[in-house]
Design a protein around this nucleic acid. Structure first.
Lengths: 340, 340
DNA sequence: TTGAAAGCGCTAACAT
DNA sequence: ATGTTAGCGCTTTCAA
């Protein structure tokens, strides 16, 4: 690892001059010295030391991506198809900008704050903080932050969000089921916060519009933990007989439940219709292929990074909240019921 | 962002003393000053500046994970179920060690080398360099490196590898098919290097043992690029009639092909048996559930990090090459043929 | 028990 | 066009 100083000594010039040619400020340097320096630079394979550069400039060239997860999901969030695609897309955009991606997963908001300070990241993508903690973040971080998939009490003025039409997705899909003649529709999720809550609210709204009664138990809560999931699926099997359709808040649950139910002899969609949310690879690979609410996950990541760099480069933000559109993808898991 | 110097000034001591209490070297400091400093530290919420610390110590606390990808797969490798789970598991292990994970994806080996130098990473996990480039890496990097899923001409003495019994997996699965009565078995992959080549060699070996003839065209090459894949699947449809079983080098291909073929009317496993490799989530969620070769992906990641830290901490390495075991998972996509 | 000071590699203001 | 120099925040050796 050769340093600027060493190069300077070899050529017999000052570090400033070397630094100038490194940064292409060749108009400040005579043609002769410039080429001479360049040659030595190449010969010794000079690579800048980011650490030193960052310290001097108080920058980092690092974009942090923070995943605030619940304790139960702490295990391996990246392997999730949705998270995987989102992170992959963010990585790509960050890379194209010449920055570096550092992943930070934690269940504690304080840790995230410490992390940002520790590394002096130039920007932060905050993935789905499910609670008010995002409030803390936006108040305590003086670095550019973009929130993805985050909902909480009030959207603070100035916070940049990238979201999906989650509520509309819930609404439209429920409407689709209703128009297909379904009246007994359960909503399945592992919690009722963040995006899932929005989707749930859309579901409720559609039910109301069609004057279909909603009862507590129509919300079926699944616990994705090992050992518990099996029991929940068993419960689900009994429950499902009271319904003609299941609206799952994610494709993964939809496919998992569908497989389990079919293994127990229930025909999908003949006996029971099932729909999901996300249109990720699971819904595409499943058979029967899953009817679901589509979103463009990669685009979400791209836009998040685009907004982040507007912040970083101090460019004008046209809209603080970007809401990506959903689309109903009709595949093979919904049956048309007789109109009543 | 308060600095050590500022703290020192506030308390009225030297930076050395502050530094000592920050690092818990309280035996060097009087109880009185120690508590006084600690109080100020807390009050001002001191967070160390990694950049400065790293520059001073010539360390980084960064573990790099480099993905050398082919141009065609450059798009979004993280969303792949296998890569996603592997990276997730590596992230977890790295985090538990108190280090930070920086992802670097590139199709150029020079870029990877530059990256390592630029950030002065403390260690590198190199994922599946499919060619001899890994040779360049092990020669040019003077930092701890662990290679995952990498095979090339010669395994350099001193290089640390974490691999799977890929060849044995290919062999055992082919044997399983052969013992089920299959004699016309095609091997499907998108290339023939690295792990796929190993799996292929295992397949060849089993065929030979059973004195089953192998012809060039029994290797079916799939191109996963958009637009081309569709045509390949079409071709595959015609091809498949000459076979009773398809051994796909990955679960993703197996499920994709199975779905396509079934959509065209072929019954699996009645008309055609299909098996995969990896036992990732696709094989578990597919219906019929895929018979496949299982590997413990998360464990692979864990071991890779464990080995890396042995290198970093200068501890003894018991075995330079770790080869994880495979296991045949029998599910529902292989039919038993009449013995001939 | 505490402090002074040099240095990590690079940057940038200022001087020549 | 080129050089000098003072930092960036932290570590560490040496001295007191």
């Amino acid at each position: 690892m050769i340093t600027i100083k060493e190069i300077a000594d070899i050529v017999g010039v000052s570090t400033t001059t070397v630094n100038n040619v490194i940064h292409g400020r060749t108009n400040q340097v005579s043609k002769a010295t410039s080429t001479k320096i360049q040659k030595v630079l190449d010969e010794y394979n000079y690579v800048p030391n980011m650490t030193a550069r960052n310290l001097a400039q108080n920058k980092s060239k690092i974009i942090g991506i923070a995943l605030k997860v619940g304790k139960d999901k702490y295990e391996n969030p990246i392997q999730d198809a949705y998270i995987g695609e989102l992170i992959g897309s963010i990585e790509k955009s960050v890379r194209e900008k010449g920055y570096f991606l550092m992943i930070y997963i934690s269940d504690s908001i304080e840790e995230v704050l410490t992390y940002v300070a520790t590394w002096n990241v130039d920007g932060l993508v905050m993935l789905g903080p499910p609670d008010e903690s995002s409030d803390t973040i936006s108040k305590s971080i003086n670095k550019p932050v973009v929130f993805v998939d985050s909902y909480y009490g009030k959207t603070n003025k100035g916070d940049i969000h990238v979201r999906l039409e989650d509520r509309r997705g819930g609404y439209e899909m429920t409407k689709y089921l209703l128009e297909s003649g379904h009246r007994k529709i359960a909503f399945v999720a592992d919690n009722c916060v963040g995006v899932d809550k929005e989707r749930f609210l859309g579901y409720r709204k559609a039910l109301e519009e069609y004057e279909v009664n909603f009862q507590e138990e129509d919300f079926f809560r699944l616990i994705p933990a090992k050992g518990i999931l099996e029991k929940d699926l068993e419960k689900m099997y009994k429950y499902s007989k009271n319904y003609t359709a299941l609206f799952c808040a994610s494709d993964y649950y939809a496919v998992t439940i569908m497989n389990d139910l079919r293994d127990r002899g229930i025909k999908v969609p003949k006996d029971l219709s099932i729909v999901g949310f996300d249109n990720n690879i699971y819904s595409q690979l499943s058979r029967p292929a899953l009817t679901t609410v589509a979103q463009d996950i990669s685009k979400k990541g791209e836009i998040a990074v685009k907004q982040l760099f507007k912040l970083i480069e101090n460019r004008k933000i046209d809209s603080e909240v970007t809401t990506l559109p959903i689309e109903i993808i009709e595949r093979d898991t919904v049956s048309l019921l007789q109109a009543e």
